[in-house]
Design a protein around this nucleic acid. Structure first.
Lengths: 205, 205
DNA sequence: GTCTATACGCCGATAGAC
DNA sequence: GTCTATCGGCGTATAGAC
């Protein structure tokens, strides 16, 4: 009964695959548009245009403009935490300098993809309570991990580990994304070296 | 001839004084509105309302919304450079640690006034070419001064002074404003101490 | 499921009365 | 010089044809 087979698997289920692909196209387009024009001036019409679809179709995949940004932010956060988790499960280097280098490199790599998108995400994201909460939770988790790492490492001499952890996280996150997003971007390798040197000397001082 | 005197100085020149006062009221209102809602959502109607005047009157003092933001940014930049210039004309301390402390304290004090306004200015300001250019010039000047200072100081051992200067400026500027603008702001004194410690150990390493 | 056309609201800016 | 009332435009989101 070929007719039955056709009803059960109509054209090898193209629906969800194509749909997810279109969502991805929209997200990619939005990333570029937001990065170029900022959130406010990055209109849905522009996004649709760049994605090669009409504005009407766009609204079949996302309920509104904010949802697009939220998804973009969520994916970035998830990528970051996944990468961090992967590093944390494996064995870390012994020397604090090498440990710090691992994390600095993580931050640099995360920002090398598209510094301008990241800048927009961090700076222009509409500060809805829910998004702020989510970002805050991730940040607090990172600070917590950093503090534990500082307190558990024999080379570390810094006294106020609470303040130190906040300072380290803020420095890495912000300086990396700022220096890489500048019109004349700093060399990533040099940035990593100097940043690691600064942090190492700080926490072992 | 009393009539002549009245024509020359009508009611002890109230015009410019009151006008400047109103301009200031508008700027203050705008600072609060922008800080609370961001630039895009900080509407001119809200600004006028908070300033206690009508929307029509507001447009007698500023040609458009962008001009209000530009003035806000200009004043902040001018304040900062003036404070820096004042410090640079006087004698600087001998030890590099104390020199760094002077500049870190400058940054902290500049941000203590209204961290949220500053955050908005830096982050959400519409990046018009002219404003970007002005900010960039100030930043480059600071980096230049810092680099010269690093190269001229006997205690400093860091090799790549170009990268180091950029890193120092970015770190101070961004970490200070971020950590002070957080929902649970860091203690300003501790921030200063730890930041100075970090930078000192870095450049003398 | 994709399109075009358009409704709707909001905001910056202006006109014109007082 | 300050106000109220309103214009013009843009941008999100929807309706409805195909």
């Amino acid at each position: 009964m070929p007719s039955d087979q056709r009803r059960i698997q109509p054209r090898k289920q193209p629906r969800q695959v194509r749909a997810e692909l279109t969502r991805q196209r929209i997200l990619t387009a939005a990333a570029h548009v937001f990065a170029d024009h900022g959130y406010a001036a990055g209109t849905t019409n522009r996004i649709a245009e760049r994605a090669g679809i009409s504005i009407g179709s766009l609204y079949q995949y996302f309920p509104n403009k904010d949802a697009i940004l939220a998804e973009l932010l969520t994916r970035h956060l998830d990528d970051g935490t996944a990468a961090a988790a992967k590093v944390l499960t494996g064995p870390l280097p012994d020397s604090i300098e090498d440990v710090l280098r691992v994390f600095v490199r993580l931050a640099v790599e995360a920002h090398l993809d598209d510094p301008h998108l990241l800048r927009m995400l961090i700076e222009q994201a509409p500060r809805s309570d829910e998004l702020l909460e989510r970002v805050g939770r991730v940040k607090r988790a990172m600070v917590g991990h950093t503090r534990a790492l500082l307190e558990g490492h024999p080379e570390v001499r810094v006294a106020d580990t609470a303040t130190a952890a906040r300072l380290v996280i803020a420095t890495v996150e912000l300086a990396v994304h700022d220096l890489l997003a500048e019109p004349d971007p700093i060399d990533a390798r040099r940035l990593e070296d100097e940043m690691v040197a600064m942090l190492t000397r700080y926490v072992t001082g």
